[in-house]
């Protein structure tokens, strides 16, 4: 696969007078991509366009080189795991995944065999014969993931797959998604929980109010923020003295002091990192920790949403 996995050009979706997605142009490459944004940002709209459930109001989206709306062949290469916690009553996990394997075109026997395989893959081997209505939330999430995998798609589109799972379940689901990506699947996974996406991948698409705010590696995104003061925290034993020194630096635009920490904002992180050893020596402070608070995706997201 040489081109992008997902390619959107001027993609918009309107629900009557309400804008769901507004003139989005972006590319999603191989591997895992996190689609990040608050509730109502347009994440689900984007994923529904990608999975062929919605027709673009304007612009175009191509998935693995094809437009997915009313395109069964393209849908055969996409596995969609919905946000909704819905199943047909009375089916076991194995029956559910088998049925959807058959709807995907697999012969009955192969669908059952494949369903058992993917249910085992998602850790549901022990429970696949039980009725879904008796499953825990985490088990239901795994079963939904299994149905998305049953026809062996190249791209997995996962809408909030970790929602509702307990902490252990979340960790296991994250590990599973990473294993799938390592096995060659492309994955786009949405979440409004920043640390979850951060734990999955460093490649993100930030979306809010129907627009893509930024896309790429977290480090690349930070390059977009040159005009934005970077936040840095310094833990040391002479915090007040150090604060007095750094506040005089021309690229430092704000300083807060705690008992043993200085939190500052600088418009030129490179210059600051070059100058800080001298400043520490000047005040005789012993450095305990120096950390960029903007390394946390959460900070980046908050800034971009406000921008």
């Amino acid at each position: 696969m040489s081109g992008p996995v997902i390619e959107a050009r001027g993609l918009s979706k309107w629900y009557g007078a309400v804008i769901g997605l507004n003139d989005v142009t972006c590319e999603v490459g191989p591997g895992i991509t996190g689609l990040l944004g608050p509730n109502g940002a347009g994440k689900s709209t984007f994923l529904r366009l990608v999975s062929g459930q919605l027709r673009p109001s304007a612009g175009e989206v191509r998935v693995l080189g094809a437009t997915p709306w009313n395109a069964p062949e393209a849908l055969g290469r996409i596995g969609f795991c919905p946000d909704e916690d819905a199943f047909w009553d009375g089916l076991s996990g194995l029956e559910f995944v088998t049925a959807l394997g058959r709807v995907s075109g697999l012969p009955r026997a192969r669908a059952r065999e494949r369903a058992a395989e993917v249910l085992e893959q998602v850790g549901m081997k022990e429970h696949m014969g039980r009725r879904i209505r008796g499953y825990s939330k985490g088990m239901r999430q795994r079963t939904k993931l299994a149905q998305a995998l049953v026809h062996d798609p190249a791209l997995l589109v996962l809408d909030e797959p970790l929602t509702g799972a307990d902490p252990v379940g979340r960790r296991e689901l994250r590990a599973l998604i990473q294993r799938l990506a390592a096995a060659g699947k492309h994955v786009i996974v949405s979440s409004h929980v920043l640390h979850e996406v951060e734990a999955l991948t460093s490649t993100v698409l930030l979306i809010a109010r129907g627009r893509v705010l930024a896309a790429g590696q977290v480090q690349e995104l930070r390059a977009l923020l040159d005009e934005h003061p970077h936040r840095i925290a310094i833990r040391c034993d002479r915090a007040r003295e150090l604060a007095r020194t750094v506040v005089a630096m021309p690229h430092v635009v704000g300083v807060d002091v705690e008992a043993s920490a200085v939190h500052l904002r600088t418009t030129d992180p490179a210059a600051f990192y070059a100058a800080i050893p001298g400043a520490l020596l000047e005040v005789g402070a012993t450095l305990e920790e120096l950390a960029s608070e903007d390394d946390d995706l959460s900070a980046l997201f908050q800034y971009l949403v406000r921008r």
Partner: peptide, 9 residues
């Protein structure tokens, strides 16, 4: 959604 995201028209 399970039916309409499948490779069946």
């Amino acid at each position: 959604v399970y039916l309409f995201t499948r490779p069946l028209p």
